[in-house]
Design a protein around this nucleic acid. Structure first.
Lengths: 193, 193
DNA sequence: TATGCGTTAGTGAATACTAACAAACGCAAC
DNA sequence: GTTGCGTTTGTTAGTATTCACTAACGCATA
């Protein structure tokens, strides 16, 4: 899967959980070690510093997002592809809700210039993927062409992010899948030629 | 304007600036006092605790947002009202960019139950305002009625939030007003009956 | 015997916050 | 006008706690 050891992956997962539960201020070496059940210095056998842990979190996010995006085949009509993409992300969030605390909260790391860069790159990558998809759809006549692909992408990603953020803020207390599908129906109507 | 003293407002403003620049981890009593030019204990002459400062930040946000929303008169057609609302917020952000670090980052305070509540209430209030607006527009025939008002609201707020978040992450390094207007044009096309 | 991975005990720096004191100011009494 | 006094708002010096991180050591396994 990735090139981290079992213990490293455990540290990464518990760290994500901590950020989701207690915010970035809850991500301390003490909390991580407590969650795993080892002592603080043991953490440093697996990561050189806390910064390295955060970098590993970002790297893991990037990888899992790329993996998710790679599933989309080029055959389906554009709207189906967008739907599948959003639904894929949704399933990932439902399986692992703590992801939502990080993947759409770039500001968390924005103060640290070392961390801000890969986050920004990941964001750009995902947006470009969707924009290219929409542009193809506009050429083939699947998607309305009177609105720029960038604007459509902004709407699709923006709506999804906002919905997922609400889900997190509401402590995952509504049926995300149902809400996402209703959102996708609305987007479909809006994008029809 | 509000019921805070001059010094209290200064503390609130510098705190917002600090969160924008350095994230929530940068919001320390030391940083606040340094930014103002007084010593740390002097801060406690004006707020009982750091938590009270954060509550004051949220309260100020709430007030300034409500003030912004109150400007919207009931006369204009719905799309014009939505445009004016978004543009009003945009002008506020351009005048005070550090606002963007807080107003759309509810997760920052989500770990603290005392803070999460007012944040959630503010969010709900703003959404309901827009939903009501859209529903009226659907009745009067201004806005397409084949999509639920909640979904339209999700799209409008989601797109705007995402654009503003990008502006913050990119260190305010693009013309927000221009991008917002392009976004509003797209939304207009999408909402037309 | 070397390596990997854990421990205990400790570092200095930063955290929110407090105690005690001092300067500045308004204001009423003389 | 000046004296005296209380309030406000600042100061210096300190608290206990928490932070990321380190040194030294133990132990199991290859």
């Amino acid at each position: 899967m990735n090139n981290y050891t079992e213990r490293q992956n455990q540290i990464i997962q518990e760290s994500i959980q901590l950020i989701a539960d207690k915010g970035i201020q809850g991500l301390t070496i003490k909390n991580i070690s407590k969650a795993i059940g080892i002592t603080e210095p043991a953490i440093y056998r697996h990561f050189e510093s806390k910064n390295d842990i955060i970098l590993a979190i970002i790297s893991t996010m990037k990888e899992s997002t790329a993996e998710e995006l790679s599933h989309i085949d080029d055959e389906n009509p554009t709207l189906e592809k967008i739907k599948k993409m959003i639904q894929g992300h949704t399933n990932r969030f439902i399986k692992n809700p703590s992801l939502t605390a990080i993947i759409f909260s770039e500001e968390i790391f924005n103060n640290n210039s070392i961390l801000a860069k890969p986050i920004r790159m990941m964001m750009k990558m995902n947006q470009n993927k969707l924009i290219t998809m929409i542009e193809k759809g506009q050429v083939s006549g699947d998607v309305r062409s009177d609105i720029q692909a960038e604007q459509i992408s902004l709407m699709v990603i923006g709506s999804f992010r906002f919905l997922v953020s609400k889900w997190h803020i509401m402590n995952f207390d509504f049926d995300l899948k149902k809400e996402v599908n209703e959102m996708l129906d609305a987007i479909e109507k809006v994008l029809e030629v």
